[in-house]
Amino acid sequence: MKLLVCISKTPDTTAKIAFTDNNSRFDTNGVTFIMNPTDEWYALVRAIEIKEQLGGSVTVINVGPKDNETVVIHKALAIGADDAVRIDADPGDAFFVASQIAAYAKDQQYDLIFTGKETIDYNGSNIGGMVAELLDLPYISLANHLEIAGNTATITREIEGGLEVLEVNTPFVISAQKGMAEQRIPNMRGIMTARSKPLKVVPPVPVAAYTTIAYYELPPQRKEVKLIDPEHPEELVKLLHEQAKVI
């Protein structure tokens, strides 16, 4: 099995969200970055488990500047990926990133391409579907279970109000979410070997910007909480009905 896992760099979940340049840019000042949680916990770990079970190799791919090698790529290698590719470009919009990944993957004959269900910064859930369309592959979104036998995968994925169990033949693209695998903490040996694993740096292909971010804004502050006497929850019911008008 030749497996490719797309990994992204995102601000830490506790990062303070602020903007600069007249609210046109995310302020990275003092922000710690991490590997996007669903990429790490579900996509990467499930790919490694499949390799452990069926043999093969796990490559991680990231579109981003050199810093990303220390922030996300080394960690992915420490957790158990075999090698890494970094497309040397500042990630633009989702179409830009997907185009870079597809351009690289096109001639590599991957059996399976993984993404996490969405990044915690831009929350698009776009990369997997775009890569699939660019490579003309099936795309299974929001999967929480994946088993492979021969070249057939059995997958459970989320649909509106339920779950769907389906079969699909490799190659295909899959986005992974909770249920797929359990988080793995890199061990000492993983951390030691990560630095000696192959890391290929590839120049980007030219891609038009389909979208650009013009402006950011923080949500309005909520008013001070109104406290209700725990002995009189009927007060709350009244407020929800008459004031908030939600029941």
Binding site: A94, N123, N126, I127, G129, E133, L142, Y210, T211
Partner: peptide, 23 residues
């Protein structure tokens, strides 16, 4: 932007060469 939309919209963006804003 529900489970089917998340599966279709990004593919359609590529196919129609159309910029997508999701969510």
């Amino acid at each position: 932007h529900n489970s089917s939309g998340k599966a279709i919209a990004p593919r359609l963006s590529v196919r129609l060469q159309a910029g997508l804003v999701s969510a």
